[in-house]
Design a binder for these strands. Sequence first.
RNA 1: GGGCCUGUAGCUCAGUCAGGUAGAGCGUCGGACUUUUAAUCCGAUGGUCGCGGGUUCGAACCCCGUCAGGCCCGCCA
Length: 534
Amino acid sequence: MHWADVAAKSLSHRGNTHVISTGITPSGEFHIGHLREILTGDMLARAARDAGLDVDFIFIVDSADPLRKVYSFLGPEFEQFIGHQIGAIPAPREGDNNPDWQRFNDDGWTYADHFLTPFMEALAEIGVRPRIIDNLSSYRDGKFAEMTKMACDSAEQIREIIERVSSRELASDWFPWSPLDSKQSLDGVKVTGYEYPLVHWIDSHGVEGSSDITKGEGKLPWRIDWPAKWSWIGVTCEAFGKDHGAAGGSYATGREISTLLGHQPPQPLTYEWISLRGKGAMSSSTGNTIGPIEALRLVPPQILRLLIANSKPNKAIDFDTGMGLVTLADEFERLCTRDFDSEINDENISRRQLVQVEDAKAALRLSMVEPGTIAKATSVSFRHLALLAQTKSSDDAIWQSLISSSAITEPTKQLEDRLARMRYWIESEHFPEEMRIQILSSPDEKALSLLDSDEKSALKELTAALRNCQWDAESIASAIPQSAKDNDMSPRSAYRAAYAALMGLERGPRLAPILAEMDKNAILKQLDSCCQLD
RNA sequence: GGGCCUGUAGCUCAGUCAGGUAGAGCGUCGGACUUUUAAUCCGAUGGUCGCGGGUUCGAACCCCGUCAGGCCCGCCA
């Protein structure tokens, strides 16, 4: 059974109504690691609905978290906001990346909005539509009030849980509420007393004040904030990264605190990180990222979904934007063409194979942008489209080629969309070299030395034939094999010779249209210098 | 120091929860076809299941140990 269906089944033992939660702090550029968080939750939510459960899928935006430091992508003026809540400060401005006061004052456009908005657009395209819960607004609206009161009233018990479970020692003046100071920062504030609903404090500037816990004049520390959310929202299941899931991590303390607050802890679903192939873990601070938006320019949303659906959550994913993407995309095409039901009904199938077929079927189901839709194969592989996109400058020429080879009858929206991404991919640094079509400008001696004597003479005939050939795809296409036939050799010799001389390969893509797009003299020059090597 | 996850074919991974003849896809090789979609079709190839013990009639799977990689016990998806 697919991992999402297994998790959904296990959820069903808890009841029929569920709140499946995910949450991210929009402290910087989003990357595909964040996509795993939300897609893991989304797929679980879909699987649970398919299993007949009533599901509310939510995405908590942790806009109440403080800005930790002036990240490399921020201007120096952000220094003043360290410790301030990211939902309450201006966004970086285009150009110098300093605070954009104008938009902040005019439209209330915040730092959190700035990073969240493009992510939400990407989510819509991927077919993820969670209910959004803004954490900062929730604090301000008093949603946390009841849980905060319980936490403050049980401060010592909570301290005991955190110290015991995480085996870290809390400061003697630790208190389960972080008040905002006289400058609206959460940093360096000491709690001096508590009389509901006020927490009294003294800040790093020596100013004293009081924070009303029912009005969001501060926030709960993360390890309490999380279980408090579970409680007031009624979360029954949450997907989170392995960092939270480790022993002594925030889930371990959270589940005990949750029980203390009178709420059954949610069923956990921990997932592994996504790294970039050959570049290590994704990290916003080192700039080693691929954003969901950028990923979507390269690949269709279904394929991005398949990346997550195909890997069990506890498996690390090494995201490969080169050949791995081709393999993944072609895998998607293959899945689309399979008849899973007849495979499942095959009596000769082993139990093991059955599991694989069922998982593949479920992965495809969960990869659909619209739940419940049926995948349609495009009958044009990624590889093939990559070829066409490199050899033909106009889209129309590509559709013509596909129509004349009767691969398609007309370009669909899906294909047009895919071609646009393909063109972007080819232009990008991610496009794999082995897929790139390169016509040599100097002879590849090694490739030429592999030709037999027939093929070597075919090369000479071919060169002569092309010299007299009209320079269009059709003429070239007939000239290549004809040059060999005229001399009692198989067309194969001519092709092998051409590939060795022009690309340094044994086989290759259809040559004629590529050559037709190139300069005739340059091609002849290259062929001549290859002939002279003998 | 304490704990969690991962290790299965050249690659990506199923299979471990409920022990019962080692499975897919990709790749590779061979064949067919070919005025070639690095295409398609057919066939083959491929593994001391990290390692060592134990339990069992029987272990990739359960138990103990060990090695390697990643992670957590401030913050991070």
